[in-house]
Design a protein around this nucleic acid. Structure first.
Length: 302
RNA sequence: GGUGCCAUAGCUCAGUUGGUAGAGCAAUGGACUGAAAAUCCAUGUGUCCCUGGUUCGAUUCCAGGUGGCACCA
């Protein structure tokens, strides 16, 4: 049976390296589930695999988009599933590796069919919110979608905005699109989590940020600085350096903040993954154990 | 060596007219359906430097000590 091995874990734990070893062992390829490694303008700050690694093992969805093109998880679902079914013709197991929680879940469980918001609608509703405030936004949502109003986090403007945008665009309440059904996939999914001692992870993250700076992250960030308002650049490692370019902080402070925000991101990833009971957890050194685990599962269910 | 100022949470500090304390940041936990490396929510943390004195009661007042900073020698 076709099996997709999902290699997940917090940022900086060594997922890329491990999934390359696994793909090599199983003569397979890797689909990336990393919402920032899609962008070809961002390579140092998103820690994409090296050119040698990319040559060694074919990767998909790495640096295939531009920061200028709006991209979202739904488009990823469609594209990635197409790629996955094509690759299963020659590889099994196949690997999905990355740390973007929502993107992983979307491949595993699917996401409801909700229209993509036009950028002009987004701009219009956002401007309305900026002029009228959060309370007005809540009231507007209550009028158009009382059901969602009851369950949504009323402090989170992005959630409210999206529901209002969908109504503005379609004339239907956001809730009418939210089916919350789990899509069945025509392949088996095995989740392999990589984690390690929190302190060791944090040290690795701090060092990795220093290495990124040494590798030229500052220049990479400066090159995209003119486009800082793009959503794709609302990204750890770039937004902090933009503040430095603005003169709002020193370079040392900016780098410090990158480290801190990366640590926070790792913590947030772990919070998300913690509730997923399907994940089998390993330490970064346990590549052999992971291979044994996959072998065992592959024969179990043939 | 002398004088002055300071010593409170992991850090930077506030405060207690004497009744054993609180902000920011950090840290930790949580939410999450097309912006997700986004966005939002919640939670502690303590020999109040040490030793004595005054007091029913001292982190707070007093004395001495220790450490730090500044100035003068």
């Amino acid at each position: 049976m076709d099996t997709l091995i999902v290699v997940l874990g917090p940022t900086g734990v060594g997922k890329s390296n491990i999934s390359i070893q696994l793909a090599k062992h199983f003569h397979s390829e890797i689909i990336s589930a990393d919402s920032r490694q899609f962008f070809r303008e961002l390579s140092i700050g998103t820690a994409v695999p090296s050119q040698e690694d990319l040559k060694l093992i074919p990767h998909h969805f790495i640096q295939t988009k531009s920061i200028h093109n709006y991209y979202n998880v739904s488009e990823f679902e469609i594209e990635a599933l197409t790629t996955i079914s094509r690759l299963f013709l020659k590889c099994n197991p196949l690997f999905l590796a990355g740390g973007s929680m929502l993107y992983i879940d979307t491949i595993c469980k699917g996401i409801d069919d909700i229209p993509t918001v036009d950028l002009d609608v987004r701009e219009e509703v956002t401007r309305w919110y900026e002029n009228n405030g959060l309370e007005a936004l809540r009231q507007r949502l209550l009028e158009v979608d009382a059901e969602y109003y009851r369950i949504v986090d009323l402090n989170n403007p992005k959630r409210l905005l999206h529901a209002v945008e969908i109504h503005q665009m379609t004339g239907k309440p956001f809730t009418s699109f939210r089916k919350n059904t789990i899509k069945e996939r025509p392949f088996r999914i095995l989740k392999v989590g990589i984690n390690q001692d929190r302190k060791v992870l944090y040290d690795r993250i701090n060092i990795r940020v220093e290495q990124m700076m040494a590798a030229g992250l500052l220049e990479e960030a400066r090159a995209v600085y003119p486009h800082r308002n793009l959503n794709s650049l609302n990204t750890v490692g770039y937004k902090e350096l933009f503040s430095y370019f603005d003169g709002d902080c020193t370079l040392v402070e900016a780098v410090d903040l990158i480290q801190r925000n990366t640590r926070k991101y790792a913590r947030k990833q772990l919070t998300w993954f913690r509730r997923d009971q399907q994940i089998q957890w390993f330490e970064p050194e346990q590549v052999k154990e992971i291979i044994n685990y996959i072998d065992q599962k592959m024969t179990e269910n043939e």
